[in-house]
Amino acid sequence: MPVRVVESSTLSQVSDAGPGQTSPQVCTLLSVGQAFSGTQNVSNQQKDEAWRVNVRIQGCDLDHGYLCGTMEALNVPMADTPVVTFWEGEIVDGKNYTFFTGKWEASPEDDIRHWTKFPSFQPFLGQVELDGGKSLDLSNYPYIFMRWKEQYFVNVGTDCGLTIAGFYYVCFSCADGSINGFYYDPNSSPFQKLELKSTNEGRSGFSFSSYELQ
C-alpha cells in the first residue's frame, strides 16, 4: 500500500539564490515529450528481478527546478497491466533545491550515501558535506542531479499492492540522455538501481515535440 508522506518544512528548498547560482542550462534531451526506457533492479536476498521501465517527461520548469512525468513499469509480477505512476522531480540547482532532501525520511547521511553512488557526483562531495551544495554552480555541468518522487498511480488503484512511498536519486547525462537512479525507501530493498536510455521510437535519430501552456 502506498504510504502518504507528510511533507515537513522543505529544508532542501533555498529561497534566495546567491551570486553565481544559476539554473541548469536547458538540455533538449530532458525536455517535454522525451522518452526513456530501461530497467529497475528490484532484486532482494531471495531472488534477482528487474522490471522494465518506460519514462516520459511531461512538464519542465527550470526556473522552479521542477520536472514531472510518468513512469511505466512493464513486467510487474502482481499486476495484470503495466503500472503507470506520475512523478514530480526536484532539480538540484543550488537555488530551488540542494543535494540535501530534508524530507521523505532521508537524512543528509542517506543523501550522501546515495549521491556518492554516481561517479559524476564525486567532485562535489566535499562542498555538499559542508552546505548541501547550495553554493555550487552546476549550470554548466554535463550531468543533472534530481530527485523524482512518485505522486500517484495513473492507471491502477492504490490497492494494487505496490508502494510509491520512496523516491529516486537521479543522475541524468546531458551528453547521451542516459539516466541512472537509486530508489530510496527505508522499507524497501536498498539501492534498487534504475537505468534508462533515451529512446527514439523506431527512428534513425532524435525527435522533439513541444507544447506551451497559456
Binding site: Q58, G59, C68, T70, F86, E88, Q151, V154, L213, Q214
Partner: peptide
C-alpha cells in the same frame, strides 16, 4: 480556468 489548468499534475491525471 486557463490559469488553473496550468497544473501539469492535474493535466497528467
Amino acid at each position: 480556468l486557463r490559469n488553473v489548468t496550468r497544473s501539469i499534475k492535474n493535466l497528467c491525471a
